[in-house]
Each structure stands twice: as C-alpha cells, then as structure tokens.
Simulated scan of single mutants.
Amino acid sequence: MDLFQSTTNADALPLGNHVLFSSDDVDHARAAVAEVYCDHRLEVIGRNPFAAQHNRLSGKALSINVMTYGAKTMIAPGALEGFYLFQFPVRGHASVNNGKNRYEIGGGTGGVINPEASTTMIWSEDCVQVMMQIEKRAFIEAACAEVCLPAGASLQFSGANKLHNSEGRAFLGILDYVIREAERGEVLLGGDTLLSKQLERTLMVGLLQTQVHNFTSVVTTNTGPMPRIIRSAESYMRENLGAPIMVEDIASAAGTSVRNLQGAFRSRYGRSPMTVLRDLRLELAWEELSNPTRTTRVTDVATELGFFHLGRFSEIYRKKYGCTPIETLRAARPGEGFGPF
C-alpha cells in the first residue's frame, strides 16, 4: 500500500474530507493559512496557475495538514514562534531557509522548522506536502520526557532527514494510518481518550527519533549506565511478555540490582519496572485485539499476557485506551457476531 494516497480518489489529496479551504486567489489563501499558522508573505514566482488547497485534521497539541499551491510559490512567515512545523513532500520538493539551516526536502526526505528562527520557503510547482504543526510547549514537554531535555533548554532541529530506514517508515506509517482512518470517518486525534493523547505523543516521539536535533545523541548513543540498564531491561521484557517474570528477573537480565533498576526507571519514566512491563503487555493486547483472527478471544489474549483477573484487565485497559478490550475487538471485526470472550 502506497503511503499518503487518498482512499477515495487517486488524483485527490489525502484528507479530502477535511478541507480547510480551496482557492485560486492568493490573498484568500494567505489569509486562510494565516488563521491556523501565522501571518506570512505569499508570492507566486512560477508560471503555473495558482491553485491552493489545504486539508487539515486538528488534534489537541498537533494538527496534520496536507497542502499544495499548484504554482511555484515563495512563503515567508518569519519566525513561527508558537509551533514547530514538520514538512514531508509527497510530490515535488521545497527549499527551506530556517535561520542558519538551509536545506532541500522531497524524494523521501523531510525536515522540521524551528519556531524561533526566521523562515523562508520556496515550493516547486507540483509540490504537495504532508505536514505536522506541533505546539511548542507540548513538544518541549515530550522532549523533556523522552530525551531528558533539561528544563529551560532549547530543542533545535537541523537539516533534511531521510525517512527510508525502519524507524522512518514506522513513523510515516503511523502518520499515514491516522490520515486514512480520518478519511474513513474515524478521527483518532483531538479526543479526550488516552488513545488520542498517546497517538499525538507517539507522533512527537517519532520526530525526535527520525529527525536530527541538538539532543539526537541522547536518543542514539549507547553510552552511560542508565541507558544500558533500561535498554537491557526493556529488551528482556519484550522478549518475555507472556512469561511470569518478576522484578528480580528483570534486574538480573539487565545486570544490575533491583534497587538500581527501580531507580533507573523512576528517573527515566517516573514509573516502576513492573508498571512499564504492564503497559508493554497492554500495548501487545491492544495490537492483538485490533488485528484479530476468527478465533481471537479477549480471555485468551488477557491470560496469555498474565492478566488473570479479567475485570481488572478490562479496567486498566480502558484507562489506557479509552475503551474496553471487547470494544476494541468488536470495532476490529464489525458485524461478525463474535462473542466477547
């Protein structure tokens, strides 16, 4: 399946049922974009006719946008100030000047515009971009949690980044999934459920993992005892999600004491190792219930992952995902009449 292709019309832009505006008037387009982004200068510098369209799916802390101007266009917003902007051309290319960063995106590369630096862009006449607009405050909070960004530190992205590797494909796959579900009428962003909040956080973390920034080394290096302990522990957990393991087993696999293991997890996640293990098991349960076979049963999924009290399993599952396990299963295979257990 190709990424970012409309599910209804091969020639249409993705998110075609979430049109913000469509216009061949430059002033109208500039004003409409300014309402959701920021004030900017917009000039047509090519010969093709101007034909702008902006589709937009709004969440709580971020929005997913699909845009084209039709013609070769220069956009000069200055400093974005309140938000970061990830850009990924699915057709054509764009040149970006963001402070000292100067790069070209397109052909499988994307980039993030920093909010503090003055920005100027030139989009090619055939450019269609999938973009994420992320509130600066929310992104900084995510970075503090995920890459230990110190309080008051600045998060700065740099350059164009290829998204051809496994992490890049996974990130784009999640973005594409959210877009496709919205086209089917299932809007996953913007709700008050834990699933909506988790999806937004996952997309932010995806950018932290796939785009170069001033804390990339924290994400990618293998130095330091705490990251090694956590990586070893989490690897052991993922390999034994269905086994009756205890915190002593995890500590032994990580080559440390229970006390050091608990301290590492508290510092990194603010949670105990066993709580992290429980959440990993819940994630696997959600994945299996969301992609069921004809014989998938909630009881079997729960017990195979060590949840033997079904009422408690249903309660913590609902708190994490905003729905019960059986609701997830029924949504994954509607109309088939399978029993809940």
Rank of each mutant, 00 (worst) to 15 (best):
L280G: 04
R312V: 03
M226F: 00
Y103H: 11
V212S: 09
T193S: 08
A34S: 15
D27M: 13
R271D: 09
F313Y: 05
F21Y: 13
E336N: 02
R91L: 04
F308K: 12
L277P: 00
N101R: 12
I140C: 04
Y317T: 10
M237V: 13
H18C: 06
V298D: 02
P340G: 06
T210Y: 07
I326N: 06
Q156M: 09
E287Y: 10
H309R: 13
F88S: 01
A302T: 01
M131K: 02
V276S: 02
Q53R: 15
V218N: 06
T73L: 05
G191V: 07
G306V: 13
Q198N: 15
F139C: 11
S232M: 09
I75A: 08
T68D: 01
T220I: 13
I230G: 01
T7Y: 03
L15Q: 06
E43V: 05
A76D: 12
D11L: 14
G337A: 04
V128Y: 00
F21R: 11
P325K: 11
G263L: 05
R231N: 14
V26L: 09
Q133L: 14
L188P: 00
D27K: 14
Q198H: 13
G152C: 09
E234Q: 02
E186W: 10
G191D: 11
M237R: 01
R47E: 05
K162T: 09
D176R: 03
P227R: 02
A331H: 01
Y37M: 12
C144I: 09
V218G: 03
H164S: 15
E186I: 15
P244S: 11
T328I: 12
H18Q: 07
G70P: 08
E234G: 01
L85D: 14
V178H: 03
F50R: 09
G16M: 13
R271V: 03
G82I: 01
K197N: 11
V218R: 14
G335W: 04
G185H: 07
F139H: 09
Q129N: 09
S166F: 05
Q156R: 12
S22L: 03
G168C: 13
D39W: 01
A332Y: 03
D279I: 08
V276Q: 00
K162E: 10
L3A: 09
H93I: 06
A151Q: 06
A151H: 09
W123H: 14
R271S: 10
M67Q: 11
G82N: 14
L172I: 03
G255I: 12
G82Q: 12
G337S: 01
D300Y: 13
V187L: 09
V36Q: 14
M1Q: 10
